[in-house]
Amino acid sequence: MKLLLVEDNTTMQATLSRAFERRGIQVVTCDDGERALAVWRDTQPDAVLLDLSLPGKDGLEVLAQARSSGLKTPVIILTARGTVGDRILGLNTGADDYLPKPFDLDELEARVRALVRRAGDAEAAPATAWCGMAVDRESGAVYHLGQPLELPPRELALLRAVLARPGHAIAKERLFELVFPGEHDVQPEAIEVVAYRLRKKIAHTGAQLVTLRGLGYLIKANP
Results as ranks from 00 to 15, higher is better:
L108R: 00
R67Q: 12
R35E: 11
P100G: 15
T29K: 04
A110E: 01
V27L: 09
L60H: 12
P102W: 11
L71E: 12
I76N: 01
G94L: 12
A110P: 00
Q26L: 14
A64T: 11
P100F: 06
V48C: 08
G33R: 02
V84R: 01
C30N: 13
D104W: 05
W40P: 00
E61G: 14
E61T: 13
L105D: 05
L54F: 10
S69L: 13
A36E: 05
A47R: 04
T73Q: 07
D42M: 14
Q44G: 07
T79W: 06
P100Q: 04
V75R: 04
I76R: 00
E61W: 06
L52C: 10
T43G: 09
D46R: 12
Q65D: 15
L50A: 12
A95V: 04
K72D: 13
A95N: 07
F103V: 09
R41F: 12
E61M: 10
D46A: 15
I88T: 03
A110H: 02
K57A: 09
L108T: 01
D51H: 01
D31I: 03
E34T: 13
V116P: 00
T83H: 04
P102F: 05
T43V: 15
V116S: 12
V28S: 12
L89Q: 10
R111E: 02
V112K: 02
L50G: 11
T93R: 13
R87H: 06
G70F: 14
G90S: 06
R41D: 10
T79S: 15
E107M: 10
A110S: 14
A95W: 07
A38F: 08
F103M: 09
G59I: 09
L54P: 04
D96N: 15
A64Q: 13
V84L: 14
V84W: 00
T79L: 07
D86A: 10
T73Y: 13
V75H: 06
P74G: 03
G56V: 07
A80K: 06
P55D: 07
P55S: 13
E61N: 11
S69N: 13
R81K: 12
Q65K: 12
E34N: 12
E109C: 06
D104I: 01
L60W: 12
A114T: 11
V75G: 10
L105N: 09
